[in-house]
C-alpha cells in the first residue's frame, strides 16, 4: 500500500482535543487509504471519530486546544500535516472539496448561491467574474439543479434541502478536485432526495474520475456507493476492506452488530413487522475511560476473558480482504 494508486494515505493519525476534563485522545492511530477514482465509506456511530478524521485530513479542527499528535496524511505525494496554513489553503477547495451534513449551515444565507460558487472558483483560478458565472451555471446544471440560469440567482432559503445540497456539491466540485470529502451528506434529507444525491455522487465519480471519502452512519447508504469500507469505533479503525466483503462477511463483532441493526429493505420478508430488532445495547465508551483491552469488549456478544485486558491489533484477513481488530481472529502478538 502507499503506492501510486492511492490518492490519500492516512497513517497512525492520533488527535487530541482539549476539554474541561483535560486532553482527550479522540483518534488513536487511525489509518486507511483512498485509491484514485474510488469511493471509500467511513462508517460508525456518532462519537466514533468519523468527522474528526475528515476534518483532520485538511486540518480544519479548531486551532486552539486540538492537535494532531502523530501520524501522516499523504495526499498526492505531499504530507498535509507538514504544510503551512498558506500552503494548505491552496489545497482546500481546489484539490480537496468538502460537503457537509447541513447545507443550510454551510451556505451563506445573505449571498445568492451563484456568487458562492463564483467565489469558490475565483479563489483558486484567475478568471473574470462573467466567465465564472457561466461556469457556475454549468456546474448547477451538472449537479442536476433544474433551471440553473434562474436558480443561480436564488438565495439558499429559496431552495429545498435537496437542491441546497446539490449547490454544496457544485461548490465542492467547482475546481475539479481530485478528492471530495462528504460528511453525512444525506442525513438531513429524506429518502427520495437521498437516493438522488447517491446517484449524483456515483455519476460524478464515474465521469470526473474523482475520489470520494464519504462518511455516514447508515451502512445501507454506504453499500450503495462504496468500493472500500472503513469501520470506526471509539476513535479506532476496527475493520476495513472491500465493501462487498465487509458487508457480506464482516469480521469484527461490532461491524456484525451494526449491520444487524439495519432494517431490511425487503419489508417484512426477513424481519417480522413490529418484532424487536437485534440491537447493539449500551453506549460507546467514554473516551476519558476507554476500556483497558478491546474498546468494544463491554458491548461485545462474543467477548472472552482476554478481551478485557489485551489490546487487539489490526489483523490481516486472508486473500487481501482487509483487516480487523479482534482477538478472535487469532491475534497472538498483542500485548497484555
Amino acid at each position: 500500500m502507499g503506492n501510486d494508486s492511492e490518492l490519500l494515505t492516512v497513517r497512525d493519525l492520533t488527535v487530541k482535543l482539549a476539554t474541561d476534563g483535560g486532553s482527550l485522545e479522540v483518534l488513536s492511530r487511525v489509518g486507511f487509504d483512498v485509491p484514485r477514482g474510488k469511493v471509500v465509506g467511513l462508517m460508525g456511530e456518532s462519537g466514533s471519530g468519523k468527522s474528526i478524521t475528515a476534518l483532520s485530513i485538511v486540518r480544519l479542527l479548531p486551532e486552539i486546544g486540538s492537535a494532531i499528535r502523530s501520524g501522516t496524511v499523504m495526499f498526492d505525494g505531499v504530507d498535509l500535516t507538514k504544510l503551512s496554513e498558506r500552503e494548505l489553503e491552496k489545497i482546500r477547495g481546489k484539490q480537496i472539496g468538502f460537503v457537509f451534513q447541513d447545507p443550510l449551515a454551510s451556505l451563506n444565507p445573505v449571498y445568492r448561491v451563484g456568487s458562492q460558487i463564483v467565489e469558490a472558483i475565483r479563489l483558486h483560478e484567475h478568471i473574470p467574474a462573467k466567465a465564472a458565472r457561466v461556469r457556475a451555471i454549468e456546474l448547477l446544471r451538472r449537479v442536476g439543479v433544474p433551471q440553473p440560469e434562474e436558480r443561480v440567482d436564488a438565495y439558499p432559503h429559496e431552495l429545498s434541502g435537496g437542491l441546497r445540497q446539490r449547490v454544496m456539491i457544485a461548490v465542492a466540485i467547482a475546481c475539479s478536485p481530485a478528492l471530495v470529502i462528504a460528511d453525512e451528506p444525506t442525513s438531513a434529507l429524506d429518502m427520495v432526495t437521498q437516493r438522488q444525491i447517491v446517484l449524483l455522487f456515483r455519476d460524478l465519480v464515474r465521469t470526473q474520475g474523482m475520489s470520494l471519502l464519504i462518511i455516514a452512519h447508515d451502512p445501507a447508504l454506504l453499500a450503495e456507493l462504496s468500493d472500500e469500507l472503513v469501520v470506526m469505533y471509539a476513535g479506532q479503525v476496527v475493520e476495513h476492506g472491500p465493501a462487498k466483503r465487509v458487508l457480506e462477511k464482516p469480521a469484527h463483532p461490532y461491524t456484525m452488530a451494526l449491520l444487524r441493526s439495519v432494517l431490511p429493505a425487503d419489508f417484512g420478508a426477513v424481519v417480522q413487522p413490529r418484532s424487536l430488532l437485534p440491537v447493539v445495547e449500551g453506549h460507546p465508551p467514554d473516551l476519558r475511560r476507554v476500556p483497558l483491552g478491546c474498546r468494544f469488549q463491554p458491548r461485545c456478544d462474543s467477548a472472552f476473558d482476554d478481551c478485557a485486558t489485551r489490546k487487539p491489533h489490526l489483523m490481516k484477513l486472508p486473500l487481501d480482504q482487509g483487516e480487523a481488530r479482534c482477538l478472535l481472529l487469532g491475534d497472538k502478538e498483542s500485548s497484555p
Partner: peptide
C-alpha cells in the same frame, strides 16, 4: 418510487 429509494444492501447495491 419511495420503495425504490430505500438503500439496498444486496450484492447489486452499487449498480442498481
Amino acid at each position: 418510487a419511495l420503495f425504490d429509494a430505500v438503500p439496498k444492501m444486496g450484492p447489486d447495491a452499487r449498480t442498481r
